[in-house]
């Protein structure tokens, strides 16, 4: 899955599920857009659906540390590569 594809899907999720329109790729989502833990949990579910895999507890804990769209994209690419889905 290429980064542009992932980015398009993530932005769609942000628009539809979190009511956040076109956030900047390096915006601090928490500070600028009010993205909170509840949203974070929801995003984890969406990532699991996107990758068609269940995340481990450690992966979920690490995912909660990300703050920007770019970091989310990096993290999804890392998870995909670990699962052999480059």
């Amino acid at each position: 899955m290429v980064r542009e594809e992932i980015q398009a899907r993530i932005l769609e999720i942000f628009r539809n599920s979190f009511e956040i329109e076109d956030p900047g790729l390096d915006d601090d989502l928490r500070d600028i857009h009010g993205f909170d833990s509840i949203d974070g949990i929801e995003l984890l579910r969406e990532i699991e659906i996107m990758l068609d895999t269940e995340l481990t507890r450690e992966e979920k804990e690490n995912a909660m540390e990300v703050r920007t769209i770019n970091q989310i994209l990096d993290y999804i690419q890392l998870l995909a590569s670990q699962r052999g889905r480059n």
Binding site: S37, I38, G40, R57, K60, E61, M64, E65
Partner: peptide, 17 residues
């Protein structure tokens, strides 16, 4: 539920949600 996720709280919050 914990007010913030992060660390061990993530798992609690995920289960509760």
């Amino acid at each position: 539920m914990p007010s913030d996720a992060g660390g061990k709280h993530t798992d609690i919050l995920v289960r509760q949600m």
